[in-house]
Amino acid sequence: MLDDRARMEAAKKEKVEQILAEFQLQEEDLKKVMRRMQKEMDRGLRLETHEEASVKMLPTYVRSTPEGSEVGDFLSLDLGGTNFRVMLVKVGEGEEGQWSVKTKHQMYSIPEDAMTGTAEMLFDYISECISDFLDKHQMKHKKLPLGFTFSFPVRHEDIDKGILLNWTKGFKASGAEGNNVVGLLRDAIKRRGDFEMDVVAMVNDTVATMISCYYEDHQCEVGMIVGTGCNACYMEEMQNVELVEGDEGRMCVNTEWGAFGDSGELDEFLLEYDRLVDESSANPGQQLYEKLIGGKYMGELVRLVLLRLVDENLLFHGEASEQLRTRGAFETRFVSQVESDTGDRKQIYNILSTLGLRPSTTDCDIVRRACESVSTRAAHMCSAGLAGVINRMRESRSEDVMRITVGVDGSVYKLHPSFKERFHASVRRLTPSCEITFIESEEGSGRGAALVSAVACKKACMLGQ
């Protein structure tokens, strides 16, 4: 009897593995994704193909990295998701002549009506938060230079001027797309009239992360975010950046690689679950690469896999709870928690219980395998993109072996128990001629924006502006 049951459990697990095998990517698959990513990057950089390229390769006008001589107080704003952060950054000489960066910050959550109302409502709310922060720190009387981390696709015309191309991540505030974001912020500050600010720089969160990590390690020339969304930036040779005049030196390019796949480059790798996630998203047909990796989508992918296993009578005796059938019910943090389970399955059992399920031991094991399959594919897909960037940098610099540091931020990278190990191992397999160091950014977005502002202020002083 026991043997029969054991055989049935083994057969069930084997069927589960057959279904989950769809998520496995072979090294040849990853090399294919990497080569296609490089081709799209090239198209994004070139003037004649930029418009139709899915990977936009947006110039950021960040050319210099901090040298350690900029000092002063800077205000930093960070808008990239449902939370908005205001930070005071003091850049100065530390002990023994070292450079020191001290920060104080406060988080504000953005109400739904500000995210989806008008641009005026959104930026009025942001300036209200700045006003509140300055009151708390008794700094209303000071006109501070301000660095703005704005983590949406922007076409820069200068370091302090950028046109919002399109909202992502659930934002829909009308009247912002096609307009200068810094102008919208300046107008809102003017409307309030109770404080003055000098907006000197606007950067993407990947750029802010790279600059913040450069402060720790001067070989950091790539910034990457794996959180709600997924994106990367890197220092490109100016001669390859056709959208900006000049051939000397390097400029940081914001790849906006989340949109890779929007022209069909990933079609052969998309599964039924991916198509369902895409169809029910706020932007169907867009940001397809990001939807395979980002935390906004990972939990939902797992939920759809679990429903398939229920329908195949391989999980929960073929019956799903009402909660499990509800879109968004299986949160991405559950994926991390399930994979963090120590082996007694308590954590998995508790999560499934909150979803109205009474799982068996085998159910718990199957749910864990589903989570591992989805998150491992995410790590491997992400590795193909980064390997594409790094191999490109090595080739354009004609280096036999390139040493490089990548600064990384984002909740999936930082909080998932195995993502970074799987990701690092896969990147290294795909970049055999590179020695890569990964560092995690601390308060990256805010500190990085302030350091970019410090560079901009120093330049302005040198130019006598």
Score class of each variant (00 low, 15 high):
G183E: 04
L415Y: 07
E96M: 14
R327D: 09
G285E: 11
Q219G: 15
A114Q: 15
K143L: 02
A21D: 12
S64D: 13
F438G: 01
F84W: 04
A10E: 14
G223C: 04
D29G: 13
V16Y: 10
G72P: 00
L355T: 04
G170Y: 15
H218I: 11
D113M: 11
T431I: 11
P59F: 00
M115R: 10
D344R: 02
V302N: 08
P66R: 12
D135K: 06
R368P: 02
A449W: 04
I390G: 01
R403F: 12
E372Q: 02
R192F: 11
V401D: 02
V16F: 09
E279V: 13
L415E: 14
K90Q: 02
Q337P: 01
D274W: 02
G448P: 13
D132K: 08
T332W: 14
C230S: 04
E248I: 06
A379P: 09
E221F: 06
L315S: 07
F423G: 05
E331I: 14
N231Y: 05
L165R: 09
V253T: 05
E14F: 14
V401M: 05
D409V: 06
G44M: 07
S321L: 10
F74L: 04
V305G: 01
R397F: 10
L430K: 05
V427I: 11
L463N: 15
E9G: 11
K13F: 14
R368I: 02
G343E: 03
D205G: 05
E421I: 14
V71A: 04
E272P: 02
I163T: 10
S281M: 08
G299F: 04
G94I: 12
R429D: 14
K169Y: 12
E248S: 06
F152S: 13
G264Y: 13
G227D: 07
M197V: 02
D341A: 05
M298G: 09
K142Q: 12
S280R: 09
M402T: 11
M238L: 03
L386W: 00
L307C: 06
S54K: 13
A259E: 12
C382E: 08
N254K: 03
I225L: 03
Y125F: 07
D3S: 08
W99L: 11
E272G: 02
S100K: 11
K104F: 05
E237A: 05
T65I: 03
E196K: 05
N204T: 06
